[in-house]
Amino acid sequence: MGKIRLGTKSDLVVCLEDLITPRETDAASPPVEVMILDGAAIVNMLAPGNAKTFSGYASLVFLPCITSQLQHTSRMDIVWDEYFPDSLKTDTRKKRGKGTRRRVEPSSSIPGNWQAFLRIDKNKVELFAFLATRIATTETEKQIISTNHKEVLCTQPRDVAGLAPCSHEEADTRILLHIQDAVRQGYTKVSIRTMDTDVVILAVAAAGRLDIDELWVAFATGKNFRYLAAHEMAVALGPDKCRGLPFFHAFTGYDTVSCFSGRGKKTVWQTWKACDEVTDEVTTAFCALATTPTISTVDDFFYTWTH
């Protein structure tokens, strides 16, 4: 009927978890040196509470959360989504429902329905830029890095040539640049906070490519929250399948890619496991597509990484 078939993306996370020994759900958070936050996910989780204005939200809700997390790490990166006109993601965002437009100014009143406010792209564009600017003025001796459109803002002076300017639309793939930058700076233990399955998949692929000891993903919320050891998953999966994993994820059903009729990710995953002899051919084909500039791939991830 003119619409793509939508599957359950998170099924692939379950497949990856089955490769390793699960971590105790009540275990303390793993010690890391760098924490990378999916900014949009954090804003979705942090309701305004008693904050009356956007300035109040920043000073009473958002920044206290950031500074409390900073106590357990040496560096923190907050990565925000971008919202481009005529994006392939536009249709996906429309499915989340309608919202209310509200200009983001320090003295503007916080809307009563926070989730409805966050359904409007222009609201988020202004809010993310506002919070990024406030983050950059945080008084701390530690390094906090926040993306701000194509650029980055830092609390401590440093060379940001490896991070900006950046043309990625979504935080999903831009997070990888920040992981790579952390590794180049000598850090070996990194954690990502997200609620997005796509970030988990990319983290496993990154762990298989980068010289990093530990890459953790603090994933989901509530009773489903857990820490995923992306580095262990990458070892269990092997380097060849790690290379093909992101395209496998997109090819078997993504926000803008239809899944197979009657065949979910678990079924396709089992097929791939049963046909190890074709991994080289599949991975080669996937990477060939990924390095062809004329083919549209997920958020330029493949082309960026292979060039």
Rank of each mutant, 00 (worst) to 15 (best):
G2S: 05
G2W: 03
K3V: 04
K3L: 03
G7V: 01
D11F: 06
L16I: 02
D18A: 12
T21I: 10
T21G: 03
P22R: 13
E24D: 14
A28R: 13
A28H: 00
S29C: 04
V32Y: 00
D38M: 00
P48V: 03
G49P: 06
A51P: 07
T53C: 04
F54P: 10
S55L: 15
I66G: 07
T67A: 03
L70K: 02
S74C: 10
W80H: 10
E82N: 15
Y83D: 03
P85G: 05
D86W: 00
D86Y: 15
T92Y: 10
T92S: 08
R93G: 00
R93M: 08
K95D: 03
G99R: 01
T100A: 07
R101A: 14
R102C: 15
R102H: 13
R103H: 15
R103N: 15
V104G: 00
S107Q: 13
S109Q: 12
Q115D: 12
R119N: 08
R119W: 01
K124P: 02
V125Q: 12
V125N: 00
F128T: 02
F130T: 02
T138R: 01
E139A: 03
T140H: 03
E141W: 00
E141Q: 11
K142C: 05
K142M: 10
K142F: 13
Q143R: 09
S146Q: 00
T147S: 14
N148Y: 03
T155F: 02
P157V: 06
P157E: 05
R158K: 14
D159I: 07
V160H: 04
P165M: 08
C166N: 15
S167N: 11
A171I: 02
D172Q: 05
Q180W: 05
Q180A: 11
V183H: 02
R184S: 08
K189A: 11
V190K: 11
R193T: 09
T194I: 09
T194H: 06
T194K: 07
V199P: 01
A203F: 07
A203T: 02
A207D: 01
A207T: 06
G208D: 03
D211C: 07
L215I: 08
W216M: 09
V217D: 02
V217H: 12
N224T: 06
N224P: 01
F225P: 00
R226M: 10
A229F: 09
A234Q: 11
V235Q: 14
P239V: 00
K241Y: 14
C242G: 09
C242T: 12
R243H: 06
F248C: 11
A250S: 09
T256W: 10
S261Q: 12
S261D: 14
G264T: 00
G264R: 07
G264Q: 01
W272K: 08
K273T: 01
A274N: 13
V278S: 11
V278M: 11
T279F: 01
C287W: 15
A288K: 15
L289R: 10
I295M: 04
F301H: 07
F302M: 11
F302L: 12
Y303D: 01
W305E: 15
T306S: 14
H307V: 08
